[in-house]
Write a protein that binds this DNA or RNA. Structure first.
Lengths: 145, 145
DNA sequence: GTAGTAACTGCAACATTGTAGCATTAAATG
DNA sequence: CATTTAATGCTACAATGTTGCAGTTACTAC
């Protein structure tokens, strides 16, 4: 499965790429570089920080993964769905967790200035997740952090 | 005008804050920290990098300015409109320019999991601006950079 | 299976964006 | 003008990501 995805795009099948793809596919939420790194370490996939960045770059470049800009300034990655389905995301401003909103497809109807071209739309809802919601409204993280 | 905005929120009127507010109000597009810094330097407002960050933080905290996550990982800032109007933004993936789409209000109707609270929605269209559009699709910046 | 080659890795060094701590300056107040 | 404390300007540091390059390894051809 993962091997297939890689060879189909003319890439070499390497330990890191396989593990990254499988981890992304298994996750139900977008993962940051850092989270991915820890998860790879847990399943004993030795890897360098830079290698991981490059593996992710390659996956995004070939449409296997997608890059999402969270509210903080770290990219998050999710496996691209085969059907090209896109969806919006929810970012908890307290703990930084990002979840997918499967049923909310970013749509828009607008007039851009002449000559502009839109490639994709990114819709991010900001707020507080269930574990953070009861607490204060901002600036005071309540989750594990 | 700027002085008023500041005192109304119990802040001290300082060179940097006034200049930042006036620059944001005069700009028709969100500005990054870096762009703001250069603009202040041009009109001979001496300031420290950190001071600028803190001035911007203060403005956002008091609802005078708004923070927007561009596609790259630098914040951009725009003057908050008095009527509370919000709008979507367009981010050029080539040159990084961000423009406001006044007529596109980020709206959504969705069901979030129980306990989640939405504070605001951020809608960012990604693509290529007029000066970059004729060129290649990605990764090859064509603008001044 | 072995050899050759280019893609990938791993390391070190660096770039960008943003924060924290703290001594100093200056805006507001009486 | 004197006092108070918010705001500034350092310096140092943190987080996230990138570049260059030597060494390794996955694939291809034999």
């Amino acid at each position: 499965m993962a091997r297939e995805l890689i060879t189909r795009h003319g890439g070499r099948v390497t330990r890191t790429r396989i593990a990254v793809i499988e981890t992304l596919l298994a996750s139900d939420q977008p993962l940051s570089h850092d989270e991915l790194g820890s998860m790879l370490a847990e399943i004993d996939i030795p890897h360098d920080r830079v290698t991981l960045y490059r593996a992710l770059d390659w996956l995004v470049e070939h449409g296997i993964a997608r890059r999402i800009a969270g509210g903080d300034r770290a990219w998050r990655f999710e496996a691209a769905r085969a059907d090209g389905h896109r969806h919006a995301h929810f970012h908890c401003d307290h703990c930084g967790q990002v979840i997918c909103l499967e049923h909310l497809e970013p749509s828009f109807s607008t007039v851009l200035p002449d000559g502009y071209r839109v490639d994709r739309a990114e819709l991010i809802l900001h707020g507080a997740c269930a574990s953070c919601s009861p607490q204060r409204s901002a600036n005071e993280p309540c989750c594990p952090h």
